[in-house]
Design a protein around this nucleic acid. Structure first.
Lengths: 214, 214
DNA sequence: GACGGCATACCGACTGGTTGGTATGGCCTC
DNA sequence: GAGGCCATACCAACCAGTCGGTATGCCGTC
């Protein structure tokens, strides 16, 4: 039997579809403004199925944040820049990769966990933790490359690899906020450019000629 | 009688109290999770009074964003660093001032409009506009100092004063997100330190000795 | 200064609809 | 026949917003 067929509306995968629906709808409207009914409709699932898989709306948010971590990990682990030998090149590769992701509508490139944590940090501690884990876990991989690059280029500094890695996440999250406020991606690109320039300066890698057309 | 007050609010000042309540509650829980009833209770006002002063919940949010712009303008206009002669010193003064504001609980130093715009950018265009105006208007004053500093120190660059001013706002907003995720202000301070270092490098003002104890 | 006319400020019960969550039962597979 | 998976029906609480009404202050007229 075609039991492996990926039927969009029946059997299996209700949980997965709910997580996917949450990921997209929450990025558009935020957590509080997203209703369980709406998620069920978008996932093609009834309310009974929802509460069969998740004990509460908040637990779906936690699952969505965890799933977000997983797909992010996979996306960046598979990115071409990971093949570069020089750890500093991987750091720049990361930034260029993130810049290239700023395509399409705003809600398509913004961050689920950054959006959620703003609303729920004070009211839903479990969601806050999941969002923190997602952001911090993502930064840890970058931190490793930064630390290696500091060793390789013998950079002695008052700042730590961890703080710089977290700073990149702050710039990205802030860039998303500005993109939402202005409803266009341009400001986010400019902010990433500034961040790249900062790291070039830290590692004394600034080319005098214009690197980028911008 | 001091009837010459320019503000339209009269007598009891229910309107003012509602705006204040919105400013604090929305920063804690976000826009969607804040109910009209809760705002009325916090302001010590009935629902009738609410809808007497505001036609909708969203219009209060717009008023709160506008008020936020006004008190921000006043706060930074009165800050001591504004007295400095050197525009570059004023830029650094701004950053140090913002860093010093990171005191108390997270919901006390985070930004109302940055919090709101994340949730409503796609659903409430009028609120989005008010938030954009607040952020962009704030950045404009910083932009002027940056532009003056570039002239004074004859900095020729591929970046514009506007993009750097907006970048500082992105860093601040992102720092708030990380502070919320980690539930502590430390990360935000570290990010502002990185931003300060970036601008020092751009203006070739980096002191070799440790400037700050951190 | 008493008066009517009118605007502003506010009250709180009420409404229609939505919310997150529950209770129960049926269907399919093992 | 037991258990995973889901559908239907339903609920109490809560939501934003409405509406008829009151209390008070201003202002020009006489």
């Amino acid at each position: 039997m075609d039991s492996h067929s990926i039927e969009p509306s029946r059997s299996g995968g209700a949980r997965r579809r709910l997580v996917d629906a949450a990921t997209s709808v929450i990025r558009e409207k935020g957590y509080a403004a997203t209703s369980v009914d709406e998620l069920c409709a978008k996932a093609g699932v009834t309310k009974g199925a929802f509460f069969h898989h998740f004990p509460s709306k908040g637990s779906l948010a936690v699952a969505a944040a965890d799933h977000w971590s997983a797909i992010s990990d996979a996306l960046f682990a598979a990115a071409p820049y990971q093949q570069l030998d020089d750890p500093l090149d991987r750091v720049f590769g990361y930034l260029d990769f993130r810049r290239a992701l700023l395509r399409g509508r705003v809600e398509e490139f913004t961050c689920l966990v950054g959006t959620m944590v703003q609303e729920v940090y004070g009211t839903h501690p479990d969601i806050r933790r999941a969002c923190d884990a997602s952001i911090s876990g993502h930064a840890v991989k970058l931190e490793a490359d930064i630390a290696d690059a500091m060793k390789r280029y013998r950079i002695r500094a008052s700042w730590t690899p961890e703080s710089l890695a977290l700073h990149t996440q702050a710039v990205l999250q802030g860039a998303f906020i500005l993109a939402k406020a202005k409803n266009k991606a341009g400001v986010a690109e400019a902010s990433i450019d500034h961040l790249r320039r900062y790291i070039e300066l830290l590692f004394r890698r600034l080319k005098t000629g214009a690197r980028r057309k911008s």
